[in-house]
Design a protein around this nucleic acid. Structure first.
Ligand code: MN
Ligand code: MN
Ligand code: MN
Ligand code: MN
Lengths: 218, 218
DNA sequence: GTTGATAATAAGGTCAGCCATAATATTATT
DNA sequence: AATAATATTATGGCTGACCTTATTATCAAC
């Protein structure tokens, strides 16, 4: 039933697509940006993935995961987030680093190891970055929230998840206490898509809008 | 101090060299065999490793690790054997499979993760296959034993380690109870390098000499 | 509709690690 | 010393995943 092992690159493209959009097509340029690759390279790779039936690319309309591709992406996310739990809860690795480390381990993890890890961790529902961990069948409840960048001024919201992946960005947010579970008051939004002023844990914090997009709140 | 990340292939060549011989040069052909690669390919790779100063190749005399290469190999072995401990002791993965799974994880493990894992496991000294786990500085006490294939008929020995790597070989030995810690009586050795007849856990077992070479006993 | 931005293709390269086949070189044995 | 086995090198190829620099399509906005 399960095919030959996929390359790390393939798994990362599929995962990036899953993270960028639940279902709507993603522009190849956005995918390229996310993966730190030129648009031409991403285009080539998307073609290869299309030929393998993992992705469907309609020129000028974007790329979307096929059912097969979505299943694999879910599986990669499952591995990644289970490892994040282990690294954070059991190895006491710094929160800002767990994504990076888990992102390496995820590609080196056999199905037996994934499932044994899930048992060891007692089947956690979310990872320390706040994202849901897909079940073995690929199902999971999507987060029911919106980016902090779209929250109304004056409101008080709760951070659900932090979707940044770069370690330095995560460190920056961690230092400002913008972490899953924290209450955040939106004090002010500068005009012309300027930065937000927030109050978190009693302290005022100024946060650029592009960073605020990574923070999912309710 | 630590350089750019090495490829999985590079790490595997270095590890194979460390496993094949503590210090004496190894024939390129043996290395090729161990890695499942043609001798020509191994030769090319050995050249690249030589240029990087990880290995020293004297044509017709074999390859040996340099100090730098040996340090890296020790580090890979450390990662591998720590993962073996985790997989066996905490994830309850079948003994015969832990090598294979750890052999993937070892290349995806950052130094911080390695050390945190060592702490989590309480700094184990040996892995479930019986081999010593190198310290952070690369030091470890080599096993003081000899291959079962060289044990005297009539003697009773204790298995110290099983150095096989192929899962099917490990499974074969596991099924016959040839595991670290077990007492083994050498009942008979067939002539012309024929198989050994052993008594393990009360049962008689016939074991080919080439398999017996994998078992280190005292 | 024309135009400017964006997306996609085409074309030609690089690099690591593999492969096969053929030619040499060395070592070991007789 | 000749010879057979083994090791090494020389060539030439391949694949996946990247790159740069054009060129060409398409879409969206005026
Ligand atoms: Mn990854
Ligand atoms: Mn390995
Ligand atoms: Mn081309
Ligand atoms: Mn060549």
């Amino acid at each position: 039933m399960n095919e030959k092992p996929l390359s790390e690159s393939t798994e990362m493209y599929l995962k990036a697509l899953a993270e960028l959009s639940a279902r709507e097509p993603v522009a190849v340029a956005r995918l390229a940006e996310r993966l730190g690759v030129t648009p031409v390279s991403a285009n080539e790779m998307v073609h290869r993935l299309d030929e393998q039936g993992l992705v469907s690319h309609k020129p000028y309309k974007g790329v979307a995961l096929t059912k097969k591709g979505r299943e694999i992406a879910s599986d990669v996310l499952r591995r990644q987030r289970l490892w994040e739990c282990f690294l954070f809860d059991h190895l006491n690795i710094e929160w800002a680093q767990i994504y990076e480390f888990a992102c390496s381990l995820e590609h080196a993890t056999a199905p037996e190891v994934t499932e044994a890890l899930a048992v060891f961790l007692n089947h956690p529902k979310t990872c320390p970055r706040g994202n849901p961990i897909p079940e073995q069948d690929g199902s999971f409840e999507p987060l029911n929230g919106a980016p902090l960048s779209e929250a109304e001024v004056g409101s008080v919201v709760t951070a659900l998840a932090v979707n940044a992946t770069a370690t330095d960005v995560l460190k920056y947010l961690q230092e400002r206490n913008i972490l899953p579970g924290r209450e955040i008051e939106i004090v002010e939004a500068a005009p012309m898509r300027g930065p937000l002023t927030l109050r978190v844990e009693g302290k005022e914090v100024v946060l650029g809008l592009s960073l605020a997009e990574f923070v999912i709140v309710k």
